[in-house]
C-alpha cells in the first residue's frame, strides 16, 4: 500500500467507511507484529503487546497527519509500546555454560572452531543463544541491539523510531555491544 492509498483510506474512514479502516488495520498488523516480536524477548507476552500496540495505533489514527510515512508512524508507536513494557523488566543474571542447551553450547563450539557460517540446523539454537545473551542487558540497550543488529536498522532509523538522539544511540550501542561481548567471552572461558 502506498502513502497515497493510505491517505485515501483515511479519507474514506473519516467519511464513515469502516472497510477502509480495516484495510489499514490489516496492512499495518504484520508490521506491528514483526516489530513487537523482534523487540520483546519474552514471547509469551508478545501477543498481548501486539494487541496493545494495534489498539494504540487505531485510537490515534485520527491524529496521523501524513507528514511521515504511515508505517514509520506505526513503527514508532509499536516501539514505544515495547519500550514502556520492557522498561520495568529486570536484567537477568549472567548465564553460565551449564545454563545452555546442548545445541546452544554446540553453536559456541562451532563459532570458535570454524570461521564459516552456521548450519541451518544450528540457526534456532543460535537465535536462542542470542536471546540469552541479550537478556543480560538493560532493557533499552536490549531493544537498541535488536533494532541495530537483528533488524539491521540504521542509526537514523532508530533515532526516528525511539526519539533518542544520535549521540545517545551511538553511546548506548557501544556500551551494549561491549556488555554483550563480555558475556560472550565469559561463556567462551568456561568452554572446556
Amino acid at each position: 500500500m502506498t502513502d497515497a492509498e493510505v491517505t485515501e483510506c483515511l479519507k474514506r474512514g473519516r467519511e464513515g467507511d469502516e472497510k477502509a479502516i480495516l484495510e489499514l488495520f490489516h496492512y499495518m498488523y504484520p508490521h506491528v507484529a514483526k516489530l513487537v516480536h523482534a523487540n520483546l524477548p519474552v514471547r509469551e507476552g508478545a501477543e498481548d503487546l501486539i494487541q496493545q500496540a494495534c489498539i494504540k495505533v487505531m485510537s490515534n489514527l485520527h491524529q496521523f497527519s501524513g507528514k511521515v510515512p504511515f508505517l514509520h508512524w506505526v513503527s514508532r508507536i509499536a516501539v514505544n509500546t515495547c519500550l514502556n513494557q520492557i522498561r520495568h523488566e529486570k536484567r537477568r543474571p549472567e548465564i553460565r555454560l551449564a545454563d545452555l542447551s546442548e545445541e546452544e553450547a554446540g553453536v559456541i563450539e562451532h563459532l570458535a572452531a570454524a570461521p564459516n557460517e552456521l548450519d541451518a540446523s544450528e540457526k534456532v539454537a543460535a537465535s536462542e543463544l542470542v536471546e540469552k545473551l541479550l537478556a543480560g542487558l538493560r532493557p533499552p540497550d536490549r531493544l537498541l541491539m535488536r533494532l541495530l543488529y537483528i533488524e539491521g536498522r540504521s542509526i537514523e532509523d532508530v533515532a526516528n523510531l525511539t526519539g533518542w538522539g544520535r549521540m545517545l544511540i551511538k553511546m548506548r550501542s557501544f556500551r551494549a555491544r561491549a556488555q554483550l561481548r563480555r558475556r560472550y567471552v565469559l561463556l567462551m572461558k568456561e568452554k572446556p
Binding site: E18, I21, L22, F25, H26, Y29, P30, H31, A33, K34, H37, A38, E47, Q51, C54, I55, M58, V107, L111, E117, L118, E122, K123, V124, A126, S127, L129, V130, E131, Y149, I150, E151, G152, Y184
Partner: peptide, 26 residues
C-alpha cells in the same frame, strides 16, 4: 557478528491478526 547475523535471519514471521482483534481495533 556471525551469531547476530544468524539470529537476524531466523526472526519469526508475523502471524495473521487473532480473532477478535479486528473488532477491538475498529
Amino acid at each position: 557478528n556471525r551469531l547476530l547475523r544468524v539470529a537476524a535471519k531466523t526472526e519469526s514471521a508475523p502471524a495473521s491478526a487473532p480473532y477478535g482483534l479486528e473488532t477491538r481495533a475498529l
